[in-house]
């Protein structure tokens, strides 16, 4: 089977699930990594190191910024010319659009956010969560190529082998797009919640520390946000010690404590980290659907009756402002940091 693997990146920062997709492609046969952007030599080198048999690069100033139309057209043109059996992409905001549009161009179908992909006879059978993970479906695509995006962390990441190398082949960009990129407001978050192995989240409880005295001159709402920021600083410390990302409930996002990109749940991100620590989160169903498939769930909440404890493997009934910093210290010691 001949597979194209699209390596998704933002300003050269690769979404790690791209490498996981490369591993899946290798297990199915021949794997070509496909990279779009400008000045992406380092990515091509990494793609060889992660196991690509071939690397195809559209390196063009007009592809510096992601624009759905241009990226989709470049991908479709490449696939028409070289007829892969399968195109794999990691599931990201960009690839959903690219995969969607390429499926229209190539008159095929698209399978999104797979947690499993296997060859049964000569058919590729995809497994994906539906109904917010309450069920899974096995789905097949009768078109060719099959286009599929893989959920991050659902497939093993291949090892990087620095001794592997090769020379990338240049392909043509189809850079036309009706969309103009004006700029970015980039959050300073180091690890995104979607692909972090550890996520430490804060909820409305994060602003509930009456013993903190906000700077003079703040009104009530400003004081609440200020308190919440002190709380999130503690959550961030813990996340940093564990090499993880910071998540949030919707109440925390709606309260203006933290940007929407951190939100976990039905209207935020659905994530499956190895460890999820919920601090001051009650455990509403809309939050639970976003994190309940984490391997290990820990809840810190001062209300012993909070529904989050029904989903958690370990719980602490207590004040997060005391427990979270103590936990950070404990891990610092035990992990030798």
């Amino acid at each position: 089977m001949k597979t194209f693997v699209y390596i998704d990146h933002f300003k050269g920062q690769v979404q790690p699930a791209s490498w996981e997709a490369l591993g899946v492609a290798k297990s199915l046969g021949e794997a070509s990594a496909v990279i779009f952007g400008s000045g992406v030599d380092a990515l091509a080198k990494a793609a060889f190191e992660f196991g690509a048999d071939e690397v195809l690069v559209a390196d063009d100033a007009a592809l510096t910024d992601y624009r759905a139309e241009a990226y989709a057209s470049t991908l479709s043109a490449l696939a028409s010319a070289r007829t892969p059996d399968l195109i794999l992409l990691p599931t990201t905001t960009r690839t959903r659009e690219m995969a969607a549009m390429a499926a229209v161009d190539l008159n095929t179908g698209v399978l999104i956010d797979l947690t499993g992909l296997a060859l049964e006879g000569d058919k590729l059978v995809a497994t994906r969560p539906i109904y917010e993970g309450k069920l899974y479906e096995k789905a097949v695509c009768s078109g060719k190529p099959v286009i599929a995006t893989l959920r991050g962390r659902a497939f093993p990441r291949p090892a990087q082998d620095a001794s592997r190398s090769g020379s990338a082949a240049k392909i043509e960009a189809k850079a036309e797009s009706p969309v103009t990129v004006e700029g970015y407001d980039v959050a300073e978050q180091a690890v995104s919640v979607a692909d972090a192995g550890v996520v430490v989240s804060g909820g409305r409880g994060i602003s509930n520390n009456p013993s903190l005295t906000p700077p003079a001159g703040m009104d009530e709402k400003q004081a609440e946000v200020w308190r919440a920021q002190q709380g999130f600083a503690l959550v961030t410390d813990l996340a940093n010690v564990l090499g993880g990302a910071v998540g949030a409930s919707r109440a925390a996002v709606d309260g203006g404590y933290i940007p929407y990109s951190h939100q976990v749940g039905q209207t935020g991100k659905v994530i499956t980290p190895d460890l999820y620590i919920a601090c001051g989160i009650s455990g509403a169903i809309q939050h639970l659907v976003g994190m309940r498939n984490a391997k290990l769930i820990v809840a810190i909440n001062k209300d012993a009756e909070a529904p989050i404890f029904k989903q958690a493997h370990y719980g602490v009934v207590g004040d997060l402002f005391q427990i979270v910093p103590a936990l950070t210290e404990a891990f610092k010691k035990k992990l030798g940091k």
Binding site: V125, E137, V140, C141, G315, G318, I323, A330
Partner: peptide
């Protein structure tokens, strides 16, 4: 072009929460 071949019910997750208690935040 895309069709469902099968529905799968995920294994139900029976979670029992172990509450960690102690004398002080540090001990917990």
């Amino acid at each position: 072009i895309v069709t469902r071949a099968e529905l799968i019910t995920p294994p139900s997750r029976e979670v029992t929460c172990e509450i960690i208690a102690g004398e002080s935040p540090a001990e917990i």
